[in-house]
Structures are given as structure tokens and as C-alpha cells.
Design a protein around this nucleic acid. Structure first.
Length: 123
RNA sequence: AGAGUCGGCUGGACAGUCGCUCUGCGGGGAGCGGGAAACCGUGCCGCAGGGAGGAAAGUCCGGGCUCCAGAGGGCAGGGUGCCAGGUAACGCCUGGGAGGCGUGAGCCUACGACCAGUGCAGCAGAGAGCAGACCGCCGGUCCCGUUGCGGGCCGGUAAGGGUGAAAGGGUGCGGUAAGAGCGCACCGCACGGCUGGUAACAGUCCGUGGCACGGUAAACUCCACCCGGAGCAAGACCAAAUAGGAAUCCGCAGGCGCGGCCCGCGCCGGAUUCGGGUAGGUUGCUUGAGGCCUUCGGUGACGAAGGCCCCAGAUGAAUGACUGUUCCAGACAGAACCCGGCUUACAGGCUGGCUCUCACC
């Protein structure tokens, strides 16, 4: 791995087929009232991230952008400690009401749970 | 100073660390793909620079652009609706007119036509549209033994009362049985002329008419003008895998069909090539009715000339996160082909013109 802090295109889910693969063969799940995390192992040597922030659940474009940025930022800083998973984060209804620090805290917790569960699965 | 009115500008700042995207420059003896190579495409590293809005929003109008359709004309459907100008165009803007509101600055108006036709109008009321006698007023006549200014009948009458959102010009004088544009004066109205204005319209200078053609067209309708349809997921190009198609060649080794058999032909087979085309990718994609400054023309919207500038271009979708400092403690809110408007949301801050009231010099 070149950089363990960057976030370029190779770290994102890029096509509809990538997404549908994660949805159809989910192996690890985690959730809270504001968001749902699902993941499936990939054959690369690093994790990848995809986001689904529906307009139905987060009405304003400003809030959707804010959440995406926060999730990407959090993922960027944690990626080095993560197994090779394709992760999709789905926003739920109350997510826009959380402020930045609350979102970051929530994400930290969910990354930990997700990695733990993935590790249990492989061993 | 207070109250008000019409605009214009702005939409936290600074520092550090870690990221994203685009552009430019530089770098690499072995990143990947192509090529004989030069090199090309892509990627990597470093440096420098750009990186959301006044509404980016709602998607309500108007254009550009793209494809499809199209001789010409009409109908249907939709839109606009005082006049003139501006503009690529508009339902926008500017100037003007008319009506209404306000002491005023100023604001508001879907502001064409109901003597082309059709329709609509609850309740009240005698009567609601080529109107109408309920009370009243007046005349005549009859009756009650003649008294009361009584009652009935036949007429006249729209001045008064009453109803209503609205009752068919207003005021005054004459007139009359009582009244009435019945007549006259003034005001108003309609029509024609004249004058001013490009026009909407105004003036009331002159003449004519006793005087309605009631209201309603965001009611049907009529009149005038405008409008082909779909949208960047438009459109153009490259193009895996799989299935199917076409052409050429191979083989004549095999199977099936035509046939008694052979030759031959057709189909199946293998190879190559081609065209359509899905996933995916590239492009369209930001230099434009562009911005800023100056001068000139115009009351103004705006136009002309000259100079300078290049100012987001993502595509599972960049423009951010964290920490610190500071202040007046940060509202509404995120580009998706691009412009011109309209509408709606919005913490505050700065600023200009004008009006009214009060006080002082």
C-alpha cells in the first residue's frame, strides 16, 4: 500500500456491480438507529467504501454532502487497520440531526464492531 | 433625533496538520497497456495555481445547443392581453397613460371586447333588465242618512318611504291635479369634430343627443398576437463477455436431407473478417447573449466603441475534516449542458436617495 491516509479512487466502490455484489453477498452487518453498515470481503489488499445516502432519509443536499464527507474522512483515517472488506454505509432517517462530533464517535464505534465481526468470521 | 419608503453591497477572519478534484510545469534506466522504435495513452511523485450561491433552490416562464419531424395553409390545444420601447427571447425590465390607496416619498392593478351570440345573480323586495305601483301622492266616480279629509272601484304618477351589493344620471328652478329630462341652467355621460401626443390617452375649444348601451369574460365565447415535439439519461464516438447474424476460406474426415449409387448441392462443423450492439469507457463540458474598467448615445431599461482578464467542471459524484486563536459567535442553504428572468428561504452587517413629524441654530 502506497499511503495509508489517502483516499483516492481505488478505495471507493465505483460501479453498480460493486454495490450489488455487496448487497447480494453480505457477510458482515452492523447497525445503529441512524445508519446501517454492511460488508463483504474482497480480493484486494485493502478495504473499499461505498455510500448510500438517500434523499428520502436526508432531505437537504447540504446535509447529504456533510455526511458523506464525514464518513469518508473517518474511513480514510481508519483504513490501515481494516481488513479487506467492501463496506456500504446506508443512512437512516435521523442521521442528519447528529452534529459532526456525534457522527465521528458513532462511526468509530461501528468500524470497530464491523472489523471484529469480520475477523470472527474468517477464523 | 424619530418614523417611513425605494434601492445597492456583503454573507465570519487567521494559522497549523491530514485529505479530494482540475489545470500547468518538472521528474522516473525495469508501474500498466500499445508499438520494431521514436513515442503515445494512463498512472505515480514533487512544486505552483484554481475549486459552490445570492439564491447554486422551486423547475414557473423565455432562449441557446442537440436529435426527430416538417411543401404550404387550416383546425384543435395552450399562452399572452392599456400604449411605446429594451432584448436572442419572455409571462421579464424600463418609460408613459388610466383607475385605486396613502398627508407624502411611494405602492397596487389579468387594465382588450358583454349594442356577435349564449349563460349566471342566494336572500330580501311590488319590481332585477326593452323594469316596477307595496306604502304614499293626485284625479275621477260610487257608497256609508251629510259630518270623518273615512272606505271601495277605475285611472294617473317613479318626487318621498321601504328592500337590496345594485332600483334605469345628479343639483336647482320652472312646470303639473300630483309628478316626470316634460322644459331650462350647471355638472356628468355618449357620439362627432378640433388641438396636443408615435400611441395608450388627455384637453373641454366647438357641435349634436334628453340620456342609456346595468353588472359579470381568473363564465363559455369573440378579437389581436405568439407557440412543431422531445430533452445532456439530448446527441456523437470507442467497445469486452455471451447469444445470434452476414461474407470468405478450410475440410471433403464425419452426420442429416435430395438419391437406387456416384458426382454435385444444401444444412450442421472449424478458422478469419465484418456490421448491429449490452456492461463499461470517451466526448458533449465549459470562452460565454462572459466579467471588470473607461468614454460616448439614451429620461431609463439598454446600446456602441476601446482596453484588460480567463473565473468550478465532479460523474457511486471533488470544493472537506480536526485543532487552536479571535470577533459583533456565523442565517438560508450545495453546481450537474449553459444563459436571461420570475418566485420562494435567509442571522446579521455596511451604505445611498427621497418623504413625514419634532427640536435647535
Amino acid at each position: 500500500m502506497v499511503a495509508n491516509q489517502g483516499f483516492d479512487r481505488s478505495l471507493r466502490l465505483l460501479s453498480a456491480s460493486d454495490y450489488s455484489r455487496v448487497f447480494s453477498s453480505t457477510s458482515v452487518k452492523s447497525g445503529c438507529p441512524q445508519a446501517l453498515f454492511i460488508a463483504s470481503p474482497n480480493r484486494l489488499d485493502h478495504p473499499r467504501l461505498g455510500l448510500v445516502i438517500a434523499r428520502k432519509h436526508v432531505k437537504l443536499a447540504v446535509h447529504r454532502n456533510r455526511l458523506k464527507r464525514l464518513i469518508r474522512e473517518s474511513f480514510r483515517l481508519r483504513q490501515a487497520q481494516m481488513p479487506s472488506l467492501d463496506i456500504v454505509v446506508l443512512a437512516r432517517r435521523g442521521m442528519a440531526e447528529l452534529d459532526n462530533t456525534a457522527v465521528s464517535l458513532m462511526l468509530e464505534k461501528q468500524w470497530n464492531r464491523l472489523c471484529k465481526r469480520a475477523l470472527e468470521k474468517t477464523t
